[in-house]
Design a protein around this nucleic acid. Structure first.
Length: 827
RNA sequence: GCCCCGGUAGCCCAAUGGCAGAGGCAGAGGUCUUAAACACCUUCCAGUGUGGGUUCGAGUCCCACCCGGGGCACCA
C-alpha cells in the first residue's frame, strides 16, 4: 500500500473540482426532443421549497432521497425531468419586510439565490434551466389566468360566511390550515369572523377526489391516502324533511342523518345556533334568548368548541316539528353542537342511539326513546347511547328487523314513497377559502364596479401586478394592505369604463403551488400557463417526494386543480402524481430541532465537517426514507470513512479500462452481478438504505479480493469497482465521479449506463439446503439449485447426522422445499 | 372514541412463511506505527413488545392486549 493512498480524502477539493466540470457539461437538462423521438420519460418531482433563509437538514434529506431516484432513472436510460423552483410568495417574507422596513421581494430573492447556490453545491441533479418562482409576474400572471378560468366554470365564487380568522397573522385561513383550533403557521388560536371571501368549489370534486384515491392507494403512502379519505369524510345516509310549525306558518326543514333507521326514536330536533335557520324558526318570545345565546356561541374559540368534556348548551326555539313517519310533534332547539356548515345545519336528535344527542337530552331534560334493542342496558336509564345492531322496537314497519342495512333500506324506501326524504351522501370537505388579507401574494384579478358588479380583469390585461408597498405599509390591520394603495385600487371597469375598485385580497399561496408542476413542463412559455403538449409529454410526475405535512393541504389542492384542468381539456391526466414518497424528519437527540431547545443541527457546518457526499450518504443510509432520522444516532464520520474506502478501490485497480472481464474471478463477478440486480429492486421499492448496505458489502468483498484474493490486476476487480462508482453515484456524486475518473473514464458517471448483468452470473453454482427435524436444523447440504425434490429428500435421509438424529424415530411426514429445505416430522 | 403505521442486539436497521443477521454505529482484542491517527483483521452482543391461534415450520399470517408515532373527531 502506498503512502499516498492512506492520505485522507480531501472532500472539499474534490467538490470544487467536479462542480466546475458539471457546470460546463450541464448534464441534467431534460430534453423534450429525446422524448418526442421515443426515449422513455421520467418526471422526478420534489416539493419546491419556501425561501426562508438557507437550506436546512430537512431540505438536505428530501433532496438526497429524491436525487437517488432521479439519478437511478437517468442511468436506466430514461429522459429525466428533474426541475426545481421556489414557492416564493408568503408570510415570512412579508413579516421580514415589516421588521426591516423593506420590500418582501428583497428578502425573497436574496434567499432564493442563497438556496440555489446551496443546492448546486449539494449536487442535486436538477435541470436549472426550468427554474421558476411563483412570485415572478411571469408566473403569477398565469395563476391569475387559472383563477379566471375556474371562475368562468363556476368553481371560484364569493360568499359571505363565518370564516376562520387568525388574530396573529390578521388574515383568514382555509379549513386545512387550522390544526387543533390553531393557525397552522403561527400557532395562534383561531377565531371566527363573518366575511365575504373567495372560495374554490372543491366540494364539487369531493366524490372524484375520493374515488381516485383507490387508484393511487398502491403507490401512495398509506398515511396520505388515509388522511385524505378522512378529510373528504364521505358519509352515507338520508335527507329527511320535517315540517316545522313556526309563527309565520309551516316551513319544511331538511335534516341530514346517517341513521334514518332510528327516525322513530327522534325525540327533538336541533339546528345550528349560528345558522340563519335558527332565527327563521324561532318563536317571537324566544328571540331575545336566542340572540343572547348566539353572542355566547360566537365568543367561544375553536379550542373551547373542541374540548371533549364540554357541557352541552342550547335554547328551546319554542316551536314544534312533525316527524314525517309517525306524525309526532317534537320540540326544536338551537345549539352549537350542531354545525352550520355540515349537512343541512339541522339534525334530528335520537338520544337513545347517539351519545351527543343523549348528553343534550340529559342536560335539557328531553325525552329519550329506545328504538333498537341491542341487548345492552337501556340508554333511557343508563344515559349511555347504544349504536350497534339489534332488534328494532317502537319503529312501526321496522319492528322485528335485526340489522342496520335492511333497517336503513326500509325506512329510506318509505320516506321516498311518501316524498318526505331520500337517500343522501354527505362530505366533511368544505370549499377552499382562497382569499387572504395579506400583501405578498397573487392579487385577485377582479374589479368591483358599482354598475356592473363583479368583473373579471380581461386576460390581455394580466398580470395584475402588486402595487409597490414596503415596510410599515404592510402591517396587518385586518383588511388587505393592498387597500392602502389607492392609485392601484381605483381603476376603471373593464365592462362599462366607469369608476371601479380592484379586489384587494391576495390568493392563498397554496393556489400558486397547485399547478407549478405543470409550468415546469414549459417554463418559459409567454403565451400560456403551460403548453398542453409538453404537459402531456411529461405528466404525470412519476414520483413526488416531499413531507407528509402536506397530506391534506397541497396534495389535495393539486389533485383538485389537475382534475379541473383535465375537465377543461388542458391536460390528459386527471391525477398529477403517480407515486409518492414521504420522508421523515431529521431530528436531534430524540426531539424536533428547535431554537428553544438549542438542538438545531446546522447543515452548512455538517457539510463543512464531512463534505456533501458523507452528509447525503448518512441521510440515505440512516434507515427507511419514511422514518425520522435522529442526527445524534447516525455517523457522518463513518460515512466519510466508507467513501474513502470506496475511493481507494479505484486507486488500486490495475487493469486497463475496457479489459475483458470474462476470465475474471467468478466469485467476485457473481457478487457484483447480484449487487447490481438487487440495487435495482431496492431503489425501485425505495429501500435506499438497504441498497447502500449492498454497496458496502461489495466494497468489503472487493477490498478482500484485492488484498487476499484474486489481486488488483484481475478484471473482476475493475468490474466491481466500476459498479461501486455507478451505484454510489446515486448517493455520493462527487466521490463517484472521482472514482470514475481514477478508473480512467471520462465524466460523467451520472450519464454512464446502468451496468449490464449477465443472467448466468445470477445463477448460483450450489446452494445450501437445510435439513430440519421438527423444525430444528440438523444438517446442511451443498446441493445444485436444480436438484429435484426426490433427490434432495434422498440426500437428506442419507446424511449421517440426520440418520443419527432419526435413530429409532417414527417418520410421519417429510416436507421438501427444493432446493433450500427439508423438514422431517417425527412422532 | 374511530382509523392508519410501527415495536428485531447497547444504538440505527436487514431478513419472497424456511438456518434470526446483510450493512452500519458504539464496544473489546490484534496487525501496521517510535507513538498516534488512518487503514486492515478478529470479536462480544438479541430469539424478534405481551398472551393466544393457524402451520411440518411464524419476526413475517390471524385474534386480543401493551407501548410509540400519525390522521380524523360535537361532521349527526
Amino acid at each position: 500500500m502506498t503512502e499516498s493512498t492512506r492520505e485522507s480524502y480531501d472532500v472539499h477539493a474534490t467538490e470544487a473540482k467536479w462542480l466546475k466540470v458539471w457546470e460546463e457539461l450541464d448534464p441534467f437538462r431534460a430534453d423534450d426532443a429525446a422524448v418526442i423521438a421515443g426515449k422513455p420519460k421520467y418526471y422526478a418531482l420534489t416539493m419546491f421549497p419556501y425561501p426562508s433563509g438557507d437550506l436546512h437538514m430537512g431540505h438536505a434529506e428530501v433532496t438526497a432521497l429524491h436525487d437517488v431516484i432521479a439519478r437511478y432513472k437517468r442511468l436506466r436510460g430514461f429522459e429525466v425531468l428533474n426541475p426545481m423552483g421556489w414557492d416564493s410568495f408568503g408570510l415570512p417574507a412579508e413579516n421580514a419586510a415589516i421588521r426591516n422596513n423593506e420590500h418582501p421581494a428583497t428578502y425573497t430573492y436574496a434567499n432564493i439565490e442563497t438556496q440555489a447556490e446551496s443546492f448546486k453545491r449539494y449536487a442535486v441533479s436538477f435541470d436549472w434551466s426550468r427554474r421558476l418562482h411563483t412570485s415572478d409576474p411571469e408566473y403569477y400572471r398565469w395563476t391569475q389566468w387559472l383563477f379566471l378560468k375556474f371562475r368562468e366554470r363556476g368553481l371560484a365564487y364569493r360568499k359571505n360566511s363565518p370564516v376562520n380568522w387568525c388574530p396573529q397573522d390578521q388574515t383568514v385561513l382555509a379549513n386545512e390550515q387550522v390544526v387543533d383550533g390553531k393557525c397552522e403557521r403561527c400557532g395562534a388560536e383561531v377565531t371566527k369572523r363573518e366575511l365575504t371571501q373567495w372560495y374554490f368549489k372543491i366540494t364539487d370534486y369531493a366524490q372524484r377526489l375520493l374515488d381516485s384515491l383507490e387508484v393511487l392507494a398502491p403507490t401512495w403512502p398509506d398515511r396520505v391516502v388515509t388522511a385524505q379519505r378522512n378529510w373528504i369524510g364521505r358519509s352515507e345516509g338520508a335527507h329527511v324533511d320535517f315540517v316545522v310549525h313556526t309563527h309565520d306558518g309551516d316551513q319544511s326543514v331538511t335534516v341530514y342523518t346517517t341513521r334514518p333507521d332510528t327516525l322513530y326514536g327522534a325525540t327533538f330536533m336541533v339546528v345550528a345556533a349560528d345558522a340563519p335557520l335558527a332565527a327563521q324558526l324561532c318563536a317571537p318570545d324566544r328571540r331575545a334568548a336566542l340572540a343572547d345565546y348566539q353572542v355566547e356561541v360566537r365568543k367561544a374559540s375553536d379550542i373551547d368548541r373542541l374540548a371533549t368534556d364540554r357541557a352541552k348548551t342550547g335554547i328551546d326555539l319554542g316551536v314544534r316539528a312533525t316527524n314525517p313517519v309517525n306524525g309526532e310533534q317534537i320540540p326544536v332547539w338551537a345549539s352549537d353542537y350542531v354545525l352550520a356548515d355540515y349537512g343541512t345545519g339541522a339534525i334530528m336528535a335520537v338520544p337513545a342511539h347517539d351519545q351527543r344527542d343523549l348528553d343534550f337530552a340529559k342536560a335539557m331534560s328531553l325525552p329519550v326513546r329506545r328504538v333498537i334493542d341491542t341487548g345492552e342496558d337501556n340508554p333511557e336509564e343508563t344515559f349511555v347511547a347504544t349504536s350497534g345492531d339489534g332488534v328494532y322496537v317502537n319503529s312501526g314497519p321496522l319492528d322485528g328487523l335485526t340489522d342496520k342495512v335492511s333497517g336503513i333500506r326500509t325506512i329510506v324506501a318509505q320516506l321516498e314513497d311518501a316524498g318526505s326524504g331520500k337517500g343522501a351522501v354527505n362530505f366533511r370537505l368544505r370549499d377552499w377559502l382562497l382569499s387572504r388579507q395579506r400583501y405578498w401574494g397573487v392579487p385577485i384579478p377582479v374589479v368591483h364596479c358599482g354598475a356592473c358588479g363583479e368583473v373579471a380583469v380581461p386576460e390581455d390585461e394580466l398580470p395584475v401586478t402588486l402595487p409597490e408597498l414596503r415596510g410599515a405599509d404592510l402591517k396587518p390591520k385586518g383588511t388587505s394592505p393592498l387597500g392602502a394603495a389607492t392609485d392601484w385600487v381605483n381603476t376603471t371597469c373593464p365592462t362599462c369604463g366607469g369608476p371601479a375598485t380592484r379586489d384587494t385580497d391576495t390568493m392563498d399561496t397554496f393556489v400558486d403551488s397547485s399547478w407549478y408542476f405543470l409550468r415546469y413542463c414549459s417554463p418559459h412559455d409567454e403565451t400560456q400557463a403551460f403548453d398542453s403538449e409538453a404537459v402531456n409529454r411529461w405528466m404525470p410526475a412519476d414520483i413526488y417526494v416531499g413531507g407528509v405535512e402536506h397530506a391534506v393541504l397541497h396534495l389535495l389542492y393539486a389533485r383538485f386543480f389537475t382534475k379541473v384542468l383535465h375537465d377543461m381539456g388542458l391536460v390528459e391526466v386527471d391525477e398529477p402524481f403517480a407515486a409518492q414518497l414521504n420522508q421523515g424528519f431529521v431530528i436531534n437527540q430524540g426531539k424536533k430541532m428547535s431554537k428553544s431547545l438549542g438542538n438545531g443541527v446546522n447543515l452548512g457546518a455538517e457539510l463543512e465537517a464531512y463534505g456533501v457526499d458523507a452528509v447525503r450518504l448518512t441521510l440515505v443510509f440512516a434507515g427507511p426514507p419514511e422514518d425520522d432520522i435522529d442526527w445524534a444516532e447516525v455517523s457522518p464520520a463513518g460515512s466519510l470513512r466508507f467513501l474513502q474506502r470506496a475511493l481507494r478501490l479505484a486507486d488500486d485497480v490495475s487493469s486497463e479500462p475496457g479489459s475483458d472481464v470474462t476470465g475474471g474471478d467468478l466469485g467476485l463477478r457473481r457478487v457484483t452481478a447480484r449487487t447490481v440486480s438487487a440495487a435495482a429492486d431496492l431503489v425501485e421499492s425505495f429501500r435506499f438504505n438497504v441498497m447502500v448496505a449492498r454497496v458496502m458489502e461489495l466494497v468489503n468483498l472487493t477490498r478482500k479480493a484485492i488484498d487476499t484474493g484474486c489481486g488488483a490486476a484481475d478484471p473482476a476487480v475493475r468490474e466491481a469497482t466500476e459498479v461501486v462508482a455507478q451505484l454510489l453515484s446515486l448517493v455520493a456524486p462527487y466521490t463517484a465521479e472521482e472514482m470514475w475518473s481514477r478508473l480512467g473514464h471520462r465524466p460523467t458517471v451520472a450519464l454512464s449506463a446502468w451496468p449490464e448483468v449477465d443472467p448466468a452470473l445470477l445463477v448460483q453454482e450450489s446452494v445450501v439446503a437445510v435439513v430440519q427435524i421438527q423444525g430444528k436444523v440438523r444438517a446442511r447440504l451443498d446441493v445444485s439449485p436444480e436438484i429435484s425434490a426426490a433427490d434432495l429428500e434422498q440426500a437428506a435421509m442419507a446424511d449421517p447426522a440426520v440418520q443419527k438424529a432419526l435413530d429409532g424415530m417414527q417418520i410421519r411426514k417429510v416436507i421438501v422445499r427444493e432446493p433450500k429445505l427439508v423438514n422431517i416430522v417425527v412422532g
